[in-house]
């Protein structure tokens, strides 16, 4: 998020000085996927599409500040960001909401919100969320917004669990001795299991079980790329016919995923990067409606006060 510093000649809806949030997914607005509003699947914005095509079959959108497989766009957290297709992505903020609340619209709020949408929550449902990082916190808040009666949050860091409790979740500290997450989730749902599970941890999951060592060894030997211990646990934990929503990022090849359990219980798995531009505007309306959105608590302030010049077009300047 920041201020528009300069605009290219064909940018029609922004001008210098506008306050904007720029989604981390870059969308062209004109391809078949953009037309269907799957912005994160844009066909045209990844200059290294051939890399992703090899690994994933097809390429998705270019992403700010991500890997070279996703285009190698710099920015995301930089002082200046060159924003391609500036008529499509940026959300103009004409409102006095403080930066600390609006900032998260570029990535983690839509990510958490879409995770809750993908969890197919029905009013009164119980939702379990692994990971109380920023994505997890927004998934918790969004799950409540979308009708969850009860949210169970799992992590091992006290301040993160405290924040989750302040949003209304029941917390489980998986690192405590004698705590088994599967048992805890059964205990908290009368043996049924959560209607929906959200894996807001992803490929760098921590595990203090044997499988954790297995994954560390295999990834070190390049025989596996991701450490899917949360994914395995969430597949086990979700109730029969329930939904598993995965906003946590997975990158490549995963070992020992209990697919039989997923099949046997007939669960639905939904996953994606948020289709930012659209999810963003839904979050934006939610922001203006709801007060309980976590905000300043994850902010750290950065020391940039001497911005450098940048001559490219469509540039936004970070406010912080």
């Amino acid at each position: 998020m920041g201020l528009v510093e300069e605009v290219g000649p064909e940018v029609t809806n922004l001008k210098r000085g506008d306050r904007v949030v720029v989604p981390f997914t870059i969308a062209c607005g004109n391809c078949i996927f953009c037309k269907k509003k799957y912005w994160a699947a844009c066909d045209n914005t990844n200059p290294n599409a051939h890399l992703m095509e090899k690994a994933y079959g097809y390429s998705g959108a270019g992403l700010f500040g991500y890997s070279h497989m996703m285009g190698g766009y710099s920015g995301g957290q930089a002082q200046y960001v060159r924003v391609p297709f500036a008529n499509v992505g940026p959300l103009k903020i004409e409102n006095d909401l403080p930066d600390e609340k609006v900032l998260f619209l570029s990535d983690i709020f839509p990510t958490g919100y879409m995770a809750a949408e993908n969890a197919q929550i029905q009013p009164g449902d119980t939702v379990a969320v692994w990971g109380c990082g920023p994505v997890g916190q927004f998934a918790i808040a969004s799950a409540f917004m979308l009708g969850a009666a009860r949210v169970i949050a799992i992590d091992r860091f006290q301040e993160r669990l405290d924040l989750a409790r302040s949003l209304g979740a029941i917390t489980v500290d998986y690192s405590e001795e004698d705590v088994s997450v599967l048992t805890a989730l059964k205990d908290l749902t009368g043996g049924v299991g959560p209607d929906s599970c959200i894996d807001a941890v992803g490929l760098e999951a921590h595990s203090n079980e044997l499988q954790g060592i297995y994954d560390v060894v295999k990834t070190a030997l390049f025989m596996e790329t991701d450490r899917p211990s949360v994914l395995r646990q969430a597949i086990q934990a979700v109730r029969k016919g329930g939904t598993l929503s995965i906003p946590g990022v997975y990158g490549g090849l995963l070992d020992k995923v209990p697919f039989g359990a997923a099949f046997g219980k007939g669960i639905t798995m939904k996953m994606a990067r948020p289709t930012c531009t659209t999810t963003c505007s839904r979050c934006w309306s939610a922001l203006r409606r709801v007060r309980s959105i976590p905000a300043t608590s994850f902010l750290t302030t950065s020391p940039w006060n001497k911005p450098r010049r940048c001559t490219k077009s469509g540039v936004t300047k970070k406010r912080k």
Binding site: I26, C28, C31, N44, N48, G62, G71, S74, P84, F85
Partner: peptide, 15 residues
């Protein structure tokens, strides 16, 4: 395709 659909070809090489 990118040029036909969007009028430009996005690139990052000069970043």
């Amino acid at each position: 395709k990118a040029l036909a659909e969007t009028g430009e070809i996005p690139r990052t090489q000069l970043d």
